[in-house]
Design a protein around this nucleic acid. Structure first.
Lengths: 311, 311
DNA sequence: ACGGATACTTGACTAAGTCAACTAAATGGC
DNA sequence: GCCATTTAGTTGACTTAGTCAAGTATCCGT
């Protein structure tokens, strides 16, 4: 379950600004269609017909937001021009499945090509990296507004890839700075830990888990070898946007399972008392608080805690 | 100058998919306007008039992509309904500056409110973090397509902030993996270097520069203390999207200037021969190659180089 | 088997937008 | 300073795009 949130004025205004911007943008793209013998709506209908099979008039009307009467006439005109043909659906005599004829596909091709070239021209003004960012940003917008509800797979775990440790350092640095006011030395500590982890990585004794949700890193945890009897769980974190999905608990469970199968006797971890949600996960997993000490780190007075789990 | 790039089919198709998606999205938002006594175009005109001063008919037509004749009649109707008034521009008797009257603002208010609420409803379905991502993504699209030309300030230099080192580790890790096929140990090395840099940072002898372009990190460099006579330049990098702006050269110059003022006698650096564009910058800045050695690192056979500049 | 819904179709209409011809004022070149 | 050209805006005549309501044929649930 995702937590919903009443949006602030700045966000609403930003979205409205984008809507105005893109209304204009689409208007510009339409102008390119003007020279063809099809209107924008006709082109949209042709596009759908060219890319999807077995469509009925109702499908088209629903997906493109068109009036049934208008669409009916439009399709009739297409049929007269021999661009589309309708096949009766045996199961339902009211509906018919609409498809482009060969002539229809031929008429659509230059239209499609024109649109393709227009977009290509638009993109050519950008560098490859910018094109990439543009596409990603568009996909983000589409995914978020597309009402795609909850993704089928809420998250998946994988092991470390290039780019991950930098990303985790970046996010943890920012997150703890925002939430607890820690300074840049925390980020530096994470960098040192993860740099050393990768450098001296020993697959026999160590492991990492990255939680990914729709292609984005939303959590991670590491198990490092302290001695043949003691494994250490390090740097558990879950993105605020992905909290409530049980990712934290799952990551800790993976660590425990890994430590058990590798024959460790104890799983230990160090944390700070301000990190209450992490603490709750450790308690639920059976960890016991063994000791606490005050320390001054990351620009704050903190209480460090060691927790142990006998395996 | 930015490097342009011929876009691939996937990117073009992704952009076209987004256009279709957003055409529909805007269609849905328009439906909300239907109950008011203004058409979408009228509402757009009212919006512009409400938010910008001293507009002429031509300005409106250009910015909203409207036919001059159509707009003329539309404004005449508004004037008859006493929603707008025109003031003659003393410098040019052909043009007149159009503004909403009090009645115009009153008529616009519920329209504006309606649109505001509609967007608010749309956003409410998302969590705060998702709203944030949506807005960012929209701003990215708008900035990239907005033809905002070159930004007034092509880039600016600043010193390190929380989140920077993680970001630099992430980007360098990915970049060298993509461009030269280096493995995750390079990213780990960067993490160790930067973790240690922040941890043992000595402002008397050391410094960092982050190049920022429109709020994004596009380059960085570090100077570290090796001895009181020798400073080391480390981890120079410039984002591919920001190459050609002279950022690399500028970063190296800053390092040299800093090393001179701090009284170092030598500025040294280590690099690899495959990094040809960096090498060109070092040569131009007066660095001399002192020695080379073959080594196997980051999953590749490489030739490491030491370069020195006597200050 | 029948009441209500669904998938279209058609007629009558209005809104939205285009195009070209026109007037009046400004602007640039010589 | 004059004249050709451009720009700002207007108007008439028109087309296209889209809406609305009433209608027919078919399907679906009970």
């Amino acid at each position: 379950m995702t937590i919903h949130h009443h949006p602030g004025k700045e966000r609403i205004d930003a979205v409205r600004a984008f809507n105005r911007f893109y209304t204009r943008q689409i208007g510009l793209l339409e102008e390119g269609l003007l020279k063809s013998d099809f209107s924008l709506t006709e082109a949209r209908v042709l596009y759908e017909l060219a890319h999807r099979d077995g469509l009925t008039a109702t499908d088209l009307g629903r997906d493109l937001g068109l009036d049934a009467g208008y669409l009916s006439r439009l399709l009739k005109k297409f049929e007269e021009r021999d661009l589309v043909e309708r096949a009766t659906i045996e199961a339902d005599a009211r509906r018919s499945s609409i498809a482009l004829t060969k002539a229809g596909r031929q008429a659509f091709a230059p239209l499609n090509q024109g649109s393709h070239e227009q977009v290509a021209t638009l993109l050519e003004r950008l560098s490859a990296a910018e094109q990439d960012r543009l596409v990603r940003a568009m996909q983000t917008v589409q995914r978020l507004l597309g009402g795609s509800a909850e993704p089928k797979i809420p998250y998946m775990l994988r092991s470390l890839q290039v780019g991950d440790i930098g990303w985790i350092i970046h996010r943890q640095g920012l997150l703890y700075a925002q939430e607890y006011g820690w300074d840049e030395t925390y980020e530096a500590l994470v960098a040192e830990i993860l740099g050393a982890f990768v450098k001296s990585f020993d697959p026999k004794w160590e492991h990492s888990w990255i939680a990914e949700r729709e292609g984005e890193v939303v959590g991670s945890v590491f198990v490092v070898h302290q001695s043949d009897a003691v494994a250490k769980l390090r740097l558990l974190y879950v993105e605020p946007s992905a909290r409530g999905l049980g990712i934290g608990r799952r990551l800790v469970e993976e660590c425990i399972g890994f430590a058990r199968t590798k024959g460790y006797r104890t799983l230990t971890l160090w944390t700070n008392d301000v990190l209450t949600s992490a603490r709750r996960i450790y308690e639920a997993a059976g960890f016991k608080l063994t000791d606490e000490e005050r320390h001054h780190s990351f620009g704050k007075d903190l209480v460090g805690q060691n927790w142990n789990l006998e395996l």
